[in-house]
Amino acid sequence: MNRFTPPWGFAPIILLVVICIAGRCGPLFADEALDRFEGVWKPSRISRDDPLWLIEDLACSGCTLQGYRHLQDLLADPENNDRSIGELVNDVRAFEADLIDASLTPAAREALAAFDPTDDPTIDCTPDGDGLQHQINAPLPFEIKRVQGGLELRYEYWNAVRRVSLDAPPSLGASPSRLGTSTARMRGDTLVIETTRLVPNKIGLPGGSIPLSPEARIVEEYSLSENGQRLDLVLTTHDPVNFTEPLVDQRSVLRAEGWTLNEFVCEATTGEF
């Protein structure tokens, strides 16, 4: 039996297999997967009437991943059938406070004890002191766009724009900034964005906020639902100066067909969105 031999030989195919085994073939096939993430996405706080939201999405907006799962367990327990959702959320907040408190380093405890709510630059409409965690979790829509060499994330909050490089090492000359230096990669069907070189801006915790250290690293993991209408995020903050274990937040957003981002206008002295 005659065997087919490609006119260019088998060497390119063997090379491609070797590259994939080494874990570097992702960028070659990432374009189509990344395209599915494009569009405007809306959080639950501004679209509560959308029937696609789950009870835990509406009740646990801004929860840690562990708190969100704890609420799911509480909702699934028949013994809680007669308890209000407010009571269950209070249980979750207490659970989260204990969890986070146990992970704080002495330096973080000292910073939290010194927390002053009036010492917040956002009150005077200065975004420079507002950290990446708050930027990502803000209860306003954002947009994901494909651009040459990566992604662009546009946020209604502060009218911020993040450029995310695809599988490209950050420039050695990049200076620390409020939104840091971000790179993206596909891990299976999950979009992973890793950010370093952050200015030590504040991160919110139960009882106040603390400044992240220059060693902080934030990892976003975005997973699409099968129908492409829901985007789930796991947001992990690594900062050994402040946390003995990484802080893991979660949020979910829904596709906002026909939506565009509005111009964000901050009202000084309010500190509100």
Rank of each mutant, 00 (worst) to 15 (best):
R217K: 15
A216R: 01
L233E: 08
D189R: 15
K202E: 04
G207V: 02
G188P: 04
T236G: 03
G173V: 15
T195K: 02
P211C: 06
L235G: 00
H238L: 09
T195E: 06
E226R: 14
T190I: 14
R187K: 14
R230E: 12
R197M: 11
A174N: 14
V192M: 05
G188Y: 03
P214I: 12
G173T: 14
N227E: 11
N201M: 10
N227R: 07
A174E: 15
R230F: 11
R178Y: 11
R197W: 12
N201C: 13
R197V: 02
E226T: 15
R217P: 11
I210G: 00
L233A: 13
R197Q: 13
P214H: 13
L198I: 13
G228Y: 07
G207Q: 09
N242F: 01
D232I: 12
R185V: 00
P206D: 10
T183H: 09
M186E: 04
G180N: 04
A184V: 11
T195D: 06
N201P: 10
N227Q: 09
R230Y: 12
D239E: 12
N201L: 09
T236I: 14
A174F: 14
S223P: 03
T196I: 12
R185T: 03
P200E: 04
G208P: 02
R187E: 13
Y222R: 08
K202S: 08
T237K: 00
P240S: 10
R178K: 08
E221W: 04
A216L: 08
F243R: 09
S213C: 09
P206V: 02
T244K: 06
T181Y: 02
R187I: 04
S175Q: 15
E245Y: 05
T237I: 15
T236E: 09
P214K: 10
L233V: 04
R217D: 13
F243Y: 10
T183S: 11
V241G: 04
P246C: 12
I203A: 04
I203Q: 00
L191K: 08
